[in-house]
Design a protein around this nucleic acid. Structure first.
Lengths: 190, 190
DNA sequence: GTCTATAATCAGATAGAC
DNA sequence: GTCTATCTGATTATAGAC
């Protein structure tokens, strides 16, 4: 039940981080939303940064699990699946994207073994699929693999998703299809 | 000279907004960086939000001027030019992208005549070029024009640019070429 | 472990002299 | 218009009872 409580805290923090970002999210708010006192939250996480880091670790572990459990398929299929999964998470407010600027928070993550292991494993698997897809002539071989990797990661904080959602003209499935198309097929006609 | 001072303040704020975001940027910091006292800054801008809004207005007016002064060319050429200009600004730290979450700041911008006029004019011009390019079969006609527009706007805060820059493996021109390629031609090989 | 209450700090905004 | 000094409120974090 301690584990369950911590999970509830992380889940709430994750949602608020996705909605408002690290600076705008307050610890009071997280505690109130979970339904506990702030001091109780601090028994679980020793700082706001620790809490945010825990949220990042959790989403990274989810990504790790997703990548591991993908059924065997062509590399391009895997890459598309990852992009889709990432965008689904984001549209559901489950993607706690941190400001890429906050250096102390980033330093904390870079020192976190669980986070780094997840990041490494996911990046290596994606890197292998990207290289394979390029060899097969399915991914543009002129793009450095690192640029492809970052482009896929960037789907986790693509503002196009929320702008289109706010517009209210399309449902989530349509929005994801559109961004999938512009990401893989590009804006230019084929 | 009052105008010049205000310009200096806005320029500094713009840079800091690009570097750290609205929440992390402090008014103390802006004032110190300009070389004036905080109270003096408040004689020019009545709140931190006003200051950020002024920075957004300025960049919007720059975009407006850029679009207006583009020499006549095929619509696809214009769209590519805009995307490139946007990314150049961003890489130079001159693109004060606001967190899309801050609602009071967004409300302020939506109520700002100068900002809205710039946004409207730019959006209408881009919309016309997008429609023309689709008619010519140069932009994917299956993508709604609004999705294309948002995708172009999103280049102003694309994290791929700064990640690749941080990597240090490529210079700015190469980075922009890569992101231009993934944006217009897509990740998939042609 | 949870709570109430409080300390400590930081940042936005202002007062008032010059 | 600029400054120094200060106010005010919000927020992170902790103390100490239960």
């Amino acid at each position: 039940m301690l584990q369950a409580r911590e999970d509830a805290i992380i889940q709430t923090a994750s949602r608020l981080l996705a909605e408002k970002g690290f600076e705008a999210m307050t610890v009071d708010e997280v505690a109130a939303s979970v339904g506990i006192a702030k001091a109780s939250l601090y028994k679980h996480f020793s700082s706001k940064e620790d809490l945010a880091a825990a949220a990042m670790v959790r989403v990274m572990q989810r990504a790790q699990a997703y990548v591991r459990e993908l059924p065997p398929a062509a590399p391009m299929v895997q890459l598309r699946a990852i992009a889709r999964w990432t965008m689904e998470r984001m549209l559901r407010g489950e993607m706690p994207s941190l400001p890429s600027q906050n250096s102390t928070l980033r330093a904390k993550l870079m020192a976190d073994a669980a986070y780094m292991q997840g990041l490494m494993e996911v990046s290596q698997q994606l890197g292998a699929w990207i290289a394979a897809a390029q060899t097969l002539g399915q991914i543009n071989p002129k793009l450095p693999a690192i640029a492809v990797l970052y482009t896929l990661y960037a789907r986790a904080c693509d503002p196009v998703l929320e702008f289109l959602k706010m517009g209210g003209q399309h449902d989530e499935a349509q929005i994801i299809d559109m961004v999938m198309s512009s990401c893989f097929e590009g804006l230019a006609a084929r």
